[in-house]
């Protein structure tokens, strides 16, 4: 498959998976609000029949609703940021924020697999000029691999650091790097790596996946030489 087609297919699959997971989360928020409203209706029916309303109980119900609204707002904000990540091909971003978004987007699927995710946020911004959507897609692949390879603690620690020639992202606390967790990078990741001008390394000593990013990314228009169709840097 031509690289652009592969990236397009990967992107759609990634967007679909994220949307499905986020909509599930939102359904749960609405389901809880729905039951709180229903219980409030039940109390009203009982009050009409002469049972006294309990202000403390009503206040708690209102607090529960407000809590769910805050939760829903956080989910929608992440979805919005994620959707806008595809707006521009190349933009300067703080990788700490991108990891925060990745965490918000994947928390549910990690929890379904019984894996805890921890993002270590360094105090200073770690800027990189890159395609936020493609990088998120690549990091999602890495995270999926890391979750499958997670040790008995079932925790994956993600962190970013500045380097002389760009930045590095680490997925730590892996227990295995064998066939059980699949291969990394597989074909879709390899294409994203080339397009992003990044590198992936599995370090068996520290048991981590390391993604290295260059300081500046010039965008896929420059990487894909349109005069030669779907080729990357002269590669067939």
């Amino acid at each position: 498959m031509a690289p652009m087609d592969l990236i397009g297919r990967c992107g759609i699959q990634f967007f679909g998976k994220m949307s499905a997971s986020i909509s599930h989360d939102l359904k749960n928020v609405l389901a809880v609000i729905n039951e709180n409203a229903g219980l409030l209706e039940d109390f009203c029916v009982m009050a009409e029949k002469g049972k006294a309303l309990e202000p403390t109980r009503l206040k708690r119900l209102a607090e529960d609703v407000k809590h769910q609204i805050r939760r829903g707002d956080r989910i929608i904000t992440s979805l919005n940021t994620f959707a806008h990540s595809a707006d521009r091909e190349s933009v300067a971003i703080d990788l700490r924020e991108l990891l925060g978004l990745l965490l918000e987007l994947t928390q549910r699927s990690a929890s379904m697999q019984g894996v805890s995710l921890a993002v270590d946020r360094p105090p200073d911004p770690i800027m990189a000029t890159t395609s936020p959507f493609l990088l998120l897609n690549l990091l999602w692949f890495c995270l999926n691999y890391a979750m499958k390879a997670a040790g008995p603690e079932k925790t994956v620690e993600i962190t970013a650091e500045k380097t002389d020639d760009g930045a590095r992202l680490h997925f730590r606390k892996l227990a295995e790097m064998g066939s059980g967790a699949g291969s990394c990078p597989a074909e879709p990741e390899s294409t994203l790596i080339r397009v992003l001008n990044a590198q992936i390394r599995l370090d068996p000593d520290s048991m981590e996946v390391i993604v290295s990013l260059p300081a500046g990314f010039k965008g896929t228009d420059n990487v894909f030489n349109r005069n030669h169709g779907d080729t990357i840097g002269g590669m067939p």
Partner: peptide, 12 residues
Amino acid sequence: DEKELVTTLAER
């Protein structure tokens, strides 16, 4: 796994 959901449903 949504605790608030099951507790409220149980009450209802």
